[in-house]
């Protein structure tokens, strides 16, 4: 008798849930479909999927690429050197990285700004003192801050990797590229002010001895930027698994109590 009575309730619950979900599912493609129609190739990362985690070695290599290549123009003003503990650097290594930069501080007792070696609590040093200086040094184009760039672009880390490997020189037939611009398959409008930053194998020497191919370097730096944008990703997913399991058990118990209570009045009504 019980199972039969339960059915309509389950069906309705499912219907309600489906309604709620379809609302959400419909909306997001709608919101994002307008973003141009360039197909971004899928790059496989260790943090893909629902349960993926970062690969610390990859993040450290990615940081090296950022430090030696990107940091010449791109700031990451939301990150501090202390955050590098998260990618597996020791406190001493972090202190050493920080100390290798001169950070402006002050004013001192004489009322003047001065430079001192960086500390772990300092933010990443910015390559230019302000946006105007950055534009002036870059042909009028502002190199965007990379702190949350992976969250700020459709396609995320895949897009960054695609962009870094999407340069074509010479450009496809029939395309004229403006002076000081470069043709890039994946950049909206295809003309980008950034010269191909990572363009030859062995451009940098990886500290861990990994062979620095273009693909390796671009993947590593994309992974590093993904971590920079969402440093909480691993904690978040781990907590999510625990909370959802907890809720499923609690839901089962609650549903059992519900059935028991409703049994007194003959179970769920025919609705």
């Amino acid at each position: 008798m019980m199972p039969v009575r339960k059915l309509p309730a389950l069906k309705l619950k499912a219907a309600a849930l489906a309604a709620a979900l379809s609302l959400g599912l419909m909306a997001a493609p709608g919101a994002q479909a307008a973003e141009g129609n360039i197909e971004i190739p899928d790059t496989r990362y260790s943090f893909d999927g629902l349960f993926g985690t970062f690969d610390r070695g990859e993040l450290q290599r990615g940081f090296q690429v950022y430090k030696e290549v990107c940091a010449a123009c791109h700031s990451m003003r939301l990150l501090s050197y202390r955050n590098l503990r998260d990618i597996g650097l020791s406190a001493e290594q972090v202190a050493a990285v920080a100390a290798s930069y001169q950070i402006q501080d002050g004013p001192n007792d004489d009322g003047e700004m001065f430079e001192r070696p960086g500390r772990a609590s300092d933010r990443f040093r910015r390559p230019f003192p302000n946006d105007a200086a950055a534009r002036a040094a870059n042909n009028g184009a502002l190199p965007p801050d990379l702190s949350v760039i992976v969250k700020a672009r459709v396609g995320g880390a895949d897009y960054i990797h695609a962009l870094l490997t999407g340069y074509e020189d010479p450009p496809p037939a029939g395309v004229t590229v403006m002076e000081g611009m470069y043709y890039n398959k994946y950049f909206p409008g295809h003309q980008i002010g950034m010269a191909p930053p990572i363009n030859s194998d062995g451009q940098i020497q990886y500290a861990d001895g990994t062979r620095a191919t273009v693909d390796q370097m671009t993947r590593d730096v994309s992974a590093f930027l993904a971590w920079a944008a969402e440093p909480e990703l691993e904690t978040r997913r781990a907590m999510g698994v625990r909370i959802i399991l907890f809720l499923i058990i609690l839901g089962g118990l609650t549903y059992a109590v519900k059935r028991k209570i409703w049994a007194r009045v003959g179970g769920d009504p025919v609705t």
């Binding site: 978040r236 999510g240 959802i244």
Partner: peptide, 24 residues
């Protein structure tokens, strides 16, 4: 019962695709 089902959906969004409904 409904609240817990709702919380599961909610938790899935928050923990596994928090930016899905937002705009980059």
């Amino acid at each position: 019962v409904g609240i817990i089902v709702y919380l599961i959906v909610f938790a899935f969004l928050v923990f596994f695709s928090p930016n899905y409904l937002g705009h980059p």
